[in-house]
Amino acid sequence: MAKLTPMQNLARWHIWLGWLVAIPLLLWIISGVFMTLRPIEDVRGGDLRREPAPFAPQVLIAPRLDAPATRVMLVPQGPRAVWAVTGADKVQSRYSADSGTLLGPVGVTEARVLAELAYAGSARLTAIRRFTADQAPLDLRRPRPSWQAAFEDGTHIYIDAETGEVLALRTKWWRAYDFMWGLHIMDPAGREDTSHPLLWLLGGLSLITSLFGTALLLRRRKAAR
């Protein structure tokens, strides 16, 4: 069998590496093109989120806390405001801004009202479901107990089950974009890790394949001249 020249060896390696990186390259291209189809403002659904109504600051009463707190934040909730308090033990609760007294967790009826107040679209609210912190949906991205309000247009609004805060608004385009982002960074499960060994390996092999192809192209152009 005749011995292969260095360029023939390079071509063989280029072909084999090309087969190896073909799928990730297609995924990168397809996901990248998809993520350019809509402006990021439409993906985030900023036009579907209603700004909270103003309230009178002179009538606010500080929360009556029985234990140290690491965060006290005023949260508008429809026509009123509440204090969202994070204790030193990381437990969150809410207090009335009118009386300073402790309020209970958010129930399903209140969660429905808060979600509809936060939604500026015209679609109908079709379902509401509670999630625990350890079973938070992937599109929430926060380990918080929450109510998921699903609207007819595919929008999801998440209400914190303890404080009543609006945790997130996710459109159907956001979820599709998020899925494509997960493919793009080769992390379809968590969709957060942009630096991991699989991505380094596939990125490095793709770079080497491209360099081999460029060398072969330049050599052929030189030979043709």
Rank of each mutant, 00 (worst) to 15 (best):
M1S: 11
A2G: 05
L4S: 08
T5Y: 06
T5V: 11
Q8H: 05
Q8D: 06
Q8P: 08
N9P: 00
N9M: 02
N9H: 02
A11W: 04
R12A: 07
H14K: 06
V21P: 05
I23M: 14
L26Q: 00
L26R: 00
L27N: 03
L27K: 03
W28F: 12
W28K: 02
W28C: 02
S31R: 06
S31H: 07
F34S: 12
F34I: 13
T36S: 13
T36D: 05
R38W: 12
E41I: 05
E41Y: 01
D42R: 12
G46Q: 07
A53W: 04
P54T: 01
A56G: 04
A56R: 14
Q58P: 01
Q58L: 09
V59P: 01
L60K: 05
A62S: 14
P63I: 07
L65Q: 03
D66H: 09
A67E: 13
V72E: 07
M73N: 10
M73S: 14
Q77K: 06
V82H: 12
W83P: 14
W83F: 15
W83V: 14
A88G: 13
Q92V: 07
Q92C: 00
R94Q: 13
R94T: 12
G100A: 10
L102A: 15
L103I: 06
L103C: 09
P105G: 02
G107F: 08
A111Q: 04
L114R: 15
L114D: 12
L114T: 11
A115C: 14
E116D: 14
E116Q: 15
A118M: 13
A118T: 11
Y119E: 08
G121W: 11
A123V: 11
A123C: 09
R124I: 15
R130G: 01
R130P: 13
A133D: 08
D134T: 15
L138W: 01
D139F: 02
D139L: 04
L140G: 03
R142A: 15
R144S: 10
S146F: 04
A149R: 03
A149I: 09
A149N: 05
A150Q: 14
A150W: 01
F151V: 12
T155R: 04
E162V: 09
T163S: 03
G164S: 01
E165C: 07
E165V: 07
L167E: 09
L167Q: 05
W174V: 11
W174A: 08
F179H: 03
M180F: 14
W181E: 04
D187F: 04
S195G: 05
S195Q: 03
P197M: 00
P197R: 01
L198A: 11
L201R: 02
L202F: 12
G204W: 00
G204T: 13
L207I: 09
I208N: 02
T209P: 00
S210F: 15
L211R: 03
G213C: 10
A215S: 13
R221C: 00
R221K: 13
